[in-house]
Design a protein around this nucleic acid. Structure first.
Lengths: 213, 213, 213, 213
DNA sequence: TATGAATGAGACTTCATTCAT
DNA sequence: CATGAATGAAGTCTCATTCAT
């Protein structure tokens, strides 16, 4: 008459697991339409247990975004450090390839997409992302650009425009391969796509003879 | 078994007015969190009156997206037509300037941003936008690109990559100036930004001597 | 540029037409779920016009029931008058045949069924029907019974029981052939059914030899 | 994004309690006009709790009717079994007395009355009752009748007519003592009434000398 | 008289959150 | 720590009723 042992839980990683579940449910249904109960079920917990780890649904969203922002920011920071100065062109290609490859993965792009979707409704969230992700990215690119100009491989261009030229294609690619993906879309290899985009953008930054600016 | 009444006249443009109100409320709060009553209030109507024009909240979203998609698609189509073939570079500059200028207006960018936000949750909506806006844009760009290659002012580049290079900066700019806008952000002139971006991208498409592909 | 003439209306009978429409819609959907707009449509009028003739939905129900009650009561009263005294047995057979034949018609039974359905919710309505229809019926039957007893063709039986024995089968038949009718139910001829029922009930009222009460 | 709480224990008989409450409210106001909140209040629960047990208001009505149909059908079946064959006349008297006694209780007659009221609007509901209650009753009566004919105590009469003669008075009595009851109505003892009705109906079924059919 | 746009109360249903166990 | 029954606020949608035309 004894019960089955049943799986023991590893309670240390609980919050992380919950956030994973929350991210999945949020991206699928949108934050407002996501039900805490679904998140709980996905995390293998009961509704009530969620509140032992997070004080509210909002708190989960915040934690999620912060986690994502932190990851992206530190990734970005690692990039500047890792010898971008030595060969800015190669660095840019590497960065682009890496980002496009990662972002093509639905799981990785989920958090940024979630931010995109909810930013309007939660300004603090947008602000956080802006402060951590966007500004870090901006610094990264600016550094890359300055290094390139210093080495003579890039023309001196307006930094904000360069930033849009750099980051825009990444966002476009992410959207086209996730939210706006059609079933019959041929899925291009992210690395190839990164290469092709880099060809255009880097070429666009090259100094042209007989050109002042 | 009794209620209270009220009055008002019907400017037969009601549906449009309601959609305008809906767009505003949806972008502000997100679709799920938007209350029909708020939309009604903004449209100067009572809750119930909304349902004389739209059968449901969902129907409003659909109508909204269709209206926006139609507008964008026809704008895009007009572009191909209007002598892009004659001077693809000038055409690209014109297009970019136009789009950036319009999209900087919160009211114009509202619908596309709404689609971005809700696409995940409403796949049919994403499909509609994809079929009408994205595919039309794709055709437009491809035509521009081919014209340029034919004239020898563009290198032959991978069309999908070019599309990301073309459209990406626009999206990036829109996001940076709307959702991720900080108060202390200097607001750059859209035309200047368009010019700067065009410099980079067009330069990136120029044939370079001693270059095969 | 002239408009078509369109059918002129006969405005005198309006209220009656509206009541007919109301009866149809009420029986179909129940009073609460019936929509004034549907009644109006059925009557060939606009929603608002209904209120020119009836002050409320409730008023229509009342008028309806009163009309039906009046008809039934006067029919019942005519019965007593029409020489029931001469041959009570024949009179009972005639009455039963008549009622069963009429009640088998969905349109005729509609009002009584409506009363049955709504009586609980509208006590005044039930009271009205009771005072006009049921009590008149009760008097009719009592007269029939007394005439029969006087002539020696009926035993003296408890009047209330006789009333249930008389009226009950009619109600049962009405319910079985309307609300509880199955498609594959053979539809018996009302006159035959009336005859068969009369056989049983009249036989039940006959004096039996060696029987005191 | 926040609510208030409360508590209570679950007597695991919740569904039954809710159905009892629902039956009361439905019969009082009719299904359409009944408010879930009132049902909840009568069951000692909050509005929301109802939906933990029933998925909708409709579901409650269905459950209610099924519960009632089951009870009536099994009661009816028990009757056939319990030696109706031995003495059909006594059996009929017993059945009639029992039913009239039970049905005079407002609580017992509530469900059938509800079905009567809503049958038109919910055909599946009528069909369910017909299949389970009416058909079972029909079989019961037919068995009783055949047993009586076999024993020579009943004349062979048309079964459908007999059914109406049997069941009709019960329905009539139920309606007269519930929905159409006047305050000043003397309330007759159900057993007496059953006896008086049985006298008439059974007498009506007796074979009469010099009678072929 | 007749229309039908408009109102707004109201009802069902959902779901974040709490707390007794 | 965990559960899940319970609460109740809130939101969508319906529809009786009114009134400007």
């Amino acid at each position: 008459m004894s019960r089955t042992p049943a799986k023991r839980r590893r309670p240390e990683a609980r919050p992380e697991e919950i956030l994973d579940a929350a991210l999945a449910v949020f991206t699928e249904n949108g934050f407002a339409a996501a039900r805490v109960e679904d998140i709980a079920a996905r995390a293998g917990l009961s509704k009530g247990a969620i509140y032992l780890y997070f004080s509210s649904k909002d708190a989960m969203l915040n934690a999620l975004v912060e986690r994502s922002a932190g990851a992206l920011a530190s990734a970005s920071e690692r990039l500047v450090a890792s010898g971008g100065a030595a060969d800015p062109e190669a660095a840019y290609r590497a960065v682009l390839t890496m980002i496009l490859t990662t972002m093509t993965d639905q799981n990785v792009s989920a958090a940024p997409r979630l931010v995109l979707a909810e930013a309007q409704r939660f300004p603090e969230l947008a602000a956080h992302y802006r402060a951590h992700v966007i500004d870090t990215g901006r610094r990264t690119m600016r550094a890359l650009l300055e290094a390139g100009v210093a080495k003579g491989v890039f023309r001196p261009v307006e930094a904000e425009a360069a930033m849009r030229a750099f980051a825009g294609p990444v966002i476009a690619h992410m959207l086209l391969t996730t939210v706006f993906q059609a079933e019959d879309d041929p899925d291009t290899d992210p690395a190839d796509m990164a290469g092709a985009i880099a060809d255009i953008v880097l070429n666009g930054l090259k100094p042209r003879e007989g050109q002042e600016i």
